[in-house]
């Protein structure tokens, strides 16, 4: 019984991180129709930025999450302005460019930092939740992920710019007719999406150990959440995050961590069979 409770508590805490992990990917895919193959690289840049800044400055890693957002968001803006905006009609070229960018990022990290796995060690102690000891750092990570996820949902649902970003997804031409320049909105969406990836990387740095290649496994989780939640459906994404966290934690605890990716693929395939538009049936196809 204790084990089940542990799985549930861990899954809820992890779900918020997974949601944050998928948020940027979902926005970029939904608004720009860009499958961001560099999402994992963006995550890992955020993770390393937090690691080194924490090592050298001693600043709170939770504060550094916002620095990650600026660094990785800025990197995303440069990538979009410098290349991606010119590839609207060339999805293959775009895919190659994003994969190439990822390779450059991973190689650069290898050269600069080596292949050692790292993590941000935080010793904030533990607190009791339902009689179970839970690391305070995990609860703070949960809180930061919730705040960033909530802020993003607020931005998209309650601000003029956010509604215009949603309108890009609905009908780009109609937005032009309203006098709105969708190119600026697209740049904003890509920058916000990559900034969120950076933030997610920063949070992950306090949660797990990571190496130069770890971005891929995080990106796979993010893709699974986006597909299960339904493309463009952020509320569905939140629910999917919980499902993915429950499945991955259960598999790790009851079977083997080696089976997590297999379980993830089976889960995605099964859900897609019955809910092709995502868990809530509201996603775009």
């Amino acid at each position: 019984m204790d084990m089940l409770l542990q799985v549930l508590v861990s899954s809820v805490l992890l779900a918020a991180v997974y949601f944050l992990l998928s948020l940027g990917l979902n926005i970029i895919l939904g608004v720009l129709d860009i499958v961001n193959f560099a999402h994992g690289a963006m995550l890992i840049v955020g993770a390393y930025a937090t690691y080194y800044l924490y090592e050298y400055t001693g600043l709170s890693p939770w504060l550094l999450v916002f620095v990650d957002m600026i660094v990785v968001g800025g990197l995303g803006a440069i990538l979009y302005l410098g290349y991606l905006q010119f590839t609207v009609n060339s999805p293959l070229v775009r895919m190659f460019a994003l994969i190439g960018f990822s390779s450059v990022v991973v190689s650069s990290i290898l050269v600069i930092s080596g292949s050692d796995f790292r993590t941000v060690h935080l010793d904030y102690g533990t607190v009791d939740i339902l009689g179970l000891p839970v690391r305070v750092s995990q609860i703070v990570a949960f809180g930061v992920a919730l705040i960033l996820g909530g802020a993003t949902l607020f931005l998209l649902n309650y601000t003029k710019v956010g509604k215009a970003i949603r309108a890009v997804v609905d009908d780009r031409v109609s937005l032009w007719i309203c006098g709105v320049n969708d190119k600026r909105l697209s740049l904003l969406a890509f920058t916000v999406g990559t900034a969120l990836a950076g933030a997610a990387g920063g949070v992950l740095a306090t949660y797990v150990t990571f190496g130069p290649d770890s971005g891929l496994s995080f990106a796979i989780i993010a893709f699974a959440v986006v597909i299960l939640g339904g493309l463009g459906d952020l509320v569905g994404g939140a629910l999917a995050s919980l499902v993915v966290a429950l499945v991955l934690t259960s598999v790790t605890v009851y079977w083997s961590s080696a089976l997590t990716n297999t379980a993830l693929f089976i889960l995605v395939l099964l859900v897609l069979l019955v809910r092709p538009r995502g868990i809530l049936g509201r996603g775009r196809v």
């Binding site: 509604k163 309108a167 609905d170 009908d171 109609s174 032009w176 007719i177 309203c178 969708d182």
Partner: peptide, 27 residues
């Protein structure tokens, strides 16, 4: 481009209405 023409004072009601389906009437 179309958005610049709209800002000059040209508006259009497209065939099939083409609203933003995920947004409210007010939005």
């Amino acid at each position: 481009p179309a958005d610049a023409r709209a800002r000059l004072g040209i508006a259009m009601v497209q065939e099939g209405r083409r609203l933003f389906p995920s947004l409210s009437v007010e939005d």
